[in-house]
């Protein structure tokens, strides 16, 4: 299965060039917009905007749609639940205990559209922002909270180290798995519980090695003079440009339109 959520799609489009902070804030605004939308017209406006953004990002629509696949089950599930359990409105179908009303269909469709929009919007954020830019943006946005003791820098550092080690640990998992398969371990057959149990001897060495890595990394970071966020500078400076202001203005306008419609 291909999961595109959380992956970066390298590029140099307008969206790629925007400041990560602006993108995060606009995304949050859009999420609010998605929940405010309550009419066919407002949804149409949101979708038109999302589509325009996809074009701007120069990522193919197909690629985005592929990213929707993993959540299709949830979308259909919520659609069905909403359709059957919303009461009120005029009755469309009645068969034994099943009643479908027009307000049910309406609520269900809106809910499904809402989910799809949410995923498209957040996907656009992660696809156009590298993980480093994303953590920098989060750190910078949370910085005011550091004054009341919120560990903004530490959180961002942890996130970026976690992302750095995902491929390394994946490789290691693969290696341990192959070593155990070579000695007769079976990860592929049996019931779900049996397979989960077969994973256990995989997790133990993985954890042990992750802790050893953490220990060595801490030493290496100390050797390179790491002493927390205070007094630290950054090579890449975040800079808000006219582009970000324009993006914010467009998002605000959209929010206003959605709220009115």
């Amino acid at each position: 299965m291909q999961i595109t959520i959380g992956q970066y799609f390298p590029g140099d489009s307008l969206l790629h060039r925007m400041d990560p902070r602006a993108k995060i804030l606009i995304t949050i605004a859009l999420i609010v917009g998605v929940f405010l939308a309550d009419s066919v017209l407002s949804y149409a406006a949101m979708f038109a905007f999302a589509f325009a953004m996809i074009r701007l990002s120069r990522i193919s629509v197909k690629y985005i749609v592929k990213g929707l696949k993993p959540i299709m089950f949830i979308v259909i599930f919520t659609f069905v639940i909403n359709m059957f359990f919303t009461t009120g409105g005029t009755e469309l179908v009645r068969w034994r205990f099943i009643r479908i009303t027009d307000s049910g269909v309406r609520a269900a469709s809106f809910m499904a559209l809402r989910l799809v929009l949410l995923v498209i919007v957040t996907q656009l954020l992660t696809l156009t922002t590298s993980s480093i830019a994303l953590t920098d943006g989060i750190e910078s946005l949370l910085k005011p909270l550091a004054r009341i003791g919120f560990p903004a820098h530490e959180l961002a550092m942890m996130m970026s180290i976690a992302m750095r080690f995902i491929p390394t640990l994946m490789e290691e998992t693969d290696k341990i798995m192959k070593a155990q398969m070579a000695r007769g371990a079976d990860f592929e057959s049996g019931s779900l519980i049996q397979r989960a149990r077969a994973m256990l001897p995989l997790l133990v060495p993985l954890f042990v090695s992750a802790f050893r890595r953490a220990d060595e990394l801490a030493l290496a970071m100390e050797a390179r003079c790491y002493r927390g966020g205070r007094g630290r500078t950054r090579m890449k400076q975040l800079r808000c440009t006219k582009l970000d202001a324009a993006g914010a203005a467009v998002a605000a306008a959209l929010l206003a339109v959605v709220a009115v419609l």
């Binding site: 970026s160 750095r164 970071m221 390179r224 003079c225 790491y226 500078t233």
Partner: peptide, 15 residues
């Protein structure tokens, strides 16, 4: 430490 080579080289200097 970092997910990009140049960011990693910059790490010590940033510190």
């Amino acid at each position: 430490v970092a997910t990009i080579v140049e960011e990693d080289v910059a790490f010590g200097l940033e510190n």
